[in-house]
């Protein structure tokens, strides 16, 4: 099963020295992250370290106070944020599907309203994308009638239907029953293999080890250590990372 149809347009991603505070609470303190074109970075780290916040500054759901985000070497901070978000797909822990629409509508809404595709074309793109995550037969049901794993695959399809150049995943499998995790991780691994540039916040260390090109360990608002999975998992330099790994592995 190949999830991605057109990832030829993947870009490289760089996060440079991003700072962000919620009021007095300094959450990001100079976070850096590099993902090569078509690469996959897995972000790991303790709860509250700022992983979700970092993802949200990449597609500017949250505007960083300082620092820069670059796609193919060009800063995106000057771009129109709505246009930028069409280029960056995002998948959430709780799926965030629209419950009052059918699965198909969830996919076609942005295609029709943002990409301005005519109805029949939007439906065709949506059906193709659903087929790629194995859910073409669920096009006409409401999200609530699907399992969590199916809902998350729909959410991935919804993001992919817009042909993003980068995909962000925020603990995409954390809300799923254990037996449903594999299916979603499989879709994500396929996408990575197909050459999508991805940033994956995850607690699935097995996935990070097998799929990631880079594993980045976040702690207290910075990326403390980053490198190839083997280096991070087998030869961690930083004591905090070693302690974290001893807890999760």
């Amino acid at each position: 099963m190949s999830t991605a149809t057109a990832t030829a347009t993947s870009v490289s991603l760089a996060v440079r020295d991003v700072h962000l505070a919620f009021g007095q609470h300094q959450v990001l303190r100079g976070a850096d992250l590099e993902v090569a074109r078509g690469g996959t970075a897995c972000v790991i780290g303790p709860s509250g370290s700022g992983k979700s916040t970092l993802l949200r500054t990449i597609n500017r759901l949250i505007e960083p106070d300082r620092g820069d985000v670059l796609l193919d070497g060009r800063s995106v901070l000057g771009d129109d944020p709505d246009a930028l978000r069409q280029r960056i797909g995002m998948v959430f822990q709780q799926f965030n599907l629209f419950p009052h629409m059918t699965v198909l509508r969830n996919l076609t809404l942005a295609l029709r309203k943002l990409k301005k595709l005519p109805e029949d074309e939007a439906v065709q793109v949506a059906r193709t994308q659903l087929d790629l995550v194995g859910l073409a037969h669920k096009a006409d049901v409401r999200p609530a009638q699907l399992s969590g794993g199916q809902q998350q695959r729909v959410a991935i399809a919804r993001a992919l239907a817009l042909r993003p150049q980068v995909m962000l995943f925020d603990e995409a499998t954390s809300a799923l029953d254990p037996e449903l995790v594999k299916g979603v991780l499989g879709v994500m691994a396929d996408l990575s293999a197909a050459g999508m540039t991805m940033v994956v916040v995850t607690h699935e260390m097995g996935f990070a080890r097998e799929v990631a090109d880079t594993v980045a360990f976040m702690d207290a608002g910075v990326v403390l250590e980053a490198g190839p999975p083997a280096a991070v998992f087998e030869a961690a330099e930083h004591p905090r990372l070693r302690r974290f790994l001893s807890q999760v592995l």
Binding site: N59, L61, D82, F92, N96, A110, L114
Partner: peptide
């Protein structure tokens, strides 16, 4: 829901 919609580019 708002975040989900905004993430799509709305």
């Amino acid at each position: 829901q708002l975040e989900g919609a905004r993430a799509l580019g709305f």
